[in-house]
Design a protein around this nucleic acid. Structure first.
Length: 586
RNA sequence: GCCCCCGUAGCUCAGCGGAUAGAGCAGGAGACUUCUAAUCUCCAGGUCGCAGGUUCGAGUCCUGCCGGGGGCACCA
């Protein structure tokens, strides 16, 4: 009992696949697509005519005849043009689809990814530094992918690969040791958690400045790194405190953004420390890593540098230290060997494409990454400032994430506050936050993932066009209608009339599962955004031409209410899968 | 030099090998005693970077150019 409601598209596909078997073309793709000229169309006859040794139109005729014989064949199959088969669905079947989806769990969408275990690596901020614009996309995209895959039945394991280890901690801890008066804990401040992130960032800047200006301090900081690595307890205690405070600051952002990450999902670099030597040993024993210029490296002729020489993946530096390549190899090994992932996603900046290719290639050579396991770098483009260049503050630093969110929420407040509403202050503020945060997330998710995009608050919080607020608003209008109807149980009468706008809406609703499957395989959430926008527009067409509450006929009214409910639920579900709130009223 | 990504309307971007390439913004003209106008309707706007190739059919696939961005030894 999966609760799946087969989509009309899938049913047409099945009927055509069976018909193709009958005309000795078993296994051929029926090429069923939504159509501007009918409900669906099959383009198979033109593609297969040569193989069948006939003219496209003749094959199409035979195929149409065979389709009509199938049990559950679509109502109409008509030849058109050079060999298109236009398929139409009868009204009853369309209404039944609404009825079944409303009755089914999860809108009748199949759990097409069940049995799969997906590890998703995303966000990955650095301890003792503030989250900035550079963490926006990985956090939002990763979270949406986690939600979509989980929604399709995949077992999702979120991994927040925190930058919680490295030489910078020697500097920080030493600085704190020498400046006990430094203000960086939340209890030192009146403002609370938000201010803490800035305080930590400030601490980092001060320590860095000192490190660069004072060679003596530099030496003591380096000694402190050694102490940290060798497990000196007072140093470790200080490190743990830094990690804990940073995590609190990150959590404040995650909570505000509404992403699923919690401290339990943290598996930072430090987690892999005691595996690094073993990983390098394995690499050397397998002959995969070799010594070069004092360092241990993995070479491959796929990757060459400016001189045409092979570029190494350095797994142990000349000074004996390990770097992020070593950690990433330990990480992929852990995810395969211990977490038993069948799919591993790295939602990381596009600039690291080559690095991940090298990591994956090495993991394959080591026999860790095998045929049945999919490791994917999910790259994304940069967030640009209004000038079209990488987003920077006036002082040249990366823009702080909290400030970006503030600016979007403030902008949303200005937009919403003045409008007529009967909301109390608390509810208004919650809606403002939902709208502002949703706007940022939707703007990020709705553009094609691999491209750069400009962070433009005015546009993303605009209530027109392909924005989060437009979708949220469409949802609230539907809820409003349902409330006015008294939230009665909706009953579908399958033999009531069906208007073109209703038909178009149902066909679109019926395709949500297909869209989610596409998102799951392409790892492109913008497809879901495009789908939801089209759905909201199709609803608007329906809203304009089909009165719901004012419909005279009881059956028509009932059907339209059912349709409203299904659209509302689908929008809420879709927004939810993107990690965006769908308020009941705005 | 090699590798990766991108090039579609004035701007920002969609577009699963199929019929006439679509949205939003900006521009022009209209529609509110509303089922929430935070909306909708209509108009205008295109050598899909260029050139070949594959195909019955190419914005979409392949090759080569041109232009933009990014990456390429001990930072992550």
């Amino acid at each position: 009992m999966s609760g799946e409601v087969r989509s009309l598209s899938a049913q047409v596909h099945d009927a055509f696949a069976a018909a193709l078997r009958q005309v000795d073309l078993a296994g051929a793709d029926p090429l069923v697509r939504p159509s501007d000229h009918a409900d669906f169309q099959s383009n198979a006859a033109m593609a297969l005519a040569k193989r069948a040794g006939t003219k496209p139109r003749d094959l199409a005729e035979r195929l149409a005849a065979a389709v009509r014989e199938q049990p559950g064949a679509p109502a109409g199959v008509e030849l058109s043009g050079p060999g298109f088969l236009n398929v139409s669905i009868d009204d009853r079947t369309v209404w039944r689809q609404v009825e079944q989806r409303l009755a089914a769990p999860r809108l009748g969408i199949a759990e097409s990814r069940s049995g799969e275990r997906t590890v998703i690596d995303y966000s990955g901020p650095n301890i003792a530094k503030e989250m900035h614009v550079g963490h926006l996309r990985t956090t939002i995209l990763g979270d949406a992918l986690a939600r979509v895959l989980d929604g399709l039945g995949s077992e999702v394991i979120r991994q927040n690969h925190l930058g919680d280890w490295g030489t910078q901690f020697g500097m920080l801890i030493q600085y704190l040791d020498e400046h006990p008066e430094a203000v960086w804990r939340p209890e030192d401040l009146a403002e609370g958690a938000v201010a803490t992130t800035s305080a930590l960032d400030e601490l980092y800047r001060q320590a860095r400045a000192r490190f660069e200006a004072d060679p003596g301090f530099g030496d003591r900081a380096r000694d402190r790194v050694v102490a940290l690595q060798s497990g000196d307890e007072t140093t470790l205690a200080r490190w743990r405190e830094l990690v804990a405070q940073s995590q609190r600051a990150f959590q404040a952002i995650y909570d505000r953004l509404g992403v699923l990450l919690t401290p339990e999902d943290s598996r930072g670099e430090s987690f892999y420390n005691d595996q690094l030597a073993e990983v390098v040993d394995e690499l050397v024993k397998a002959g995969v890593a070799v010594e070069s210029d004092g360092a241990l490296c993995v070479f491959s002729d796929e990757f060459t540098g400016p001189g045409g020489d092979p570029v190494p993946l350095i797994v142990r530096k000349r000074d004996g230290g390990y770097n992020y390549a070593t950690t990433d190899l330990a990480t992929i090994r852990y995810r395969i060997r211990d977490l038993k992932a069948s799919r591993i996603l790295y939602v990381v900046d596009a600039r690291q494409a080559m690095h991940f290719q090298m990591i994956f290639a090495t993991a394959r050579r080591m026999g860790w990454l095998t045929e049945g396991i999919e490791a994917v770098h999910v790259p994304f483009g940069a967030v640009l400032g209004p000038d079209g260049k990488p987003f920077k503050t006036r002082s040249g630093g990366a823009a702080r994430l909290m400030e970006l969110l503030d600016s979007a929420v403030d902008r949303a407040r200005r937009e919403i506050e003045g409008r007529a509403h009967d909301l109390d202050a608390a509810e208004l503020e919650r809606i403002v936050a939902d709208a502002g945060i949703g706007a940022v997330k939707y703007a990020d998710l709705s553009t094609s993932r691999t491209k750069d995009y400009v962070f433009d608050v005015d546009r993303m919080v605009s209530f027109n066009g392909n924005t989060g607020v437009y979708l949220q608003y469409a949802h609230t209008r539907i809820r409003s209608i349902l409330r006015k109807a008294g939230d009665a149980d909706t009953e579908v009468t399958a033999d009531a009339p069906l208007q073109p706008a209703e038909r178009a809406l149902v066909l679109l609703l019926d395709g949500m599962g297909g869209t989610l499957d596409e998102v799951a395989s392409s790892l492109e959430p913008h497809r879901l955004c495009g789908y939801l926008f089209a759905l909201a527009k199709a609803f608007t067409d329906f809203y304009e031409s089909c009165p719901v509450l004012k419909a005279g006929d009881e059956r028509v009214r009932g059907n339209r209410l059912a349709l409203c409910r299904l659209v509302g639920d689908s929008l809420a579900r879709g927004l939810g899968l993107l990690g965006i709130a769908a308020p009941e009223r705005m």
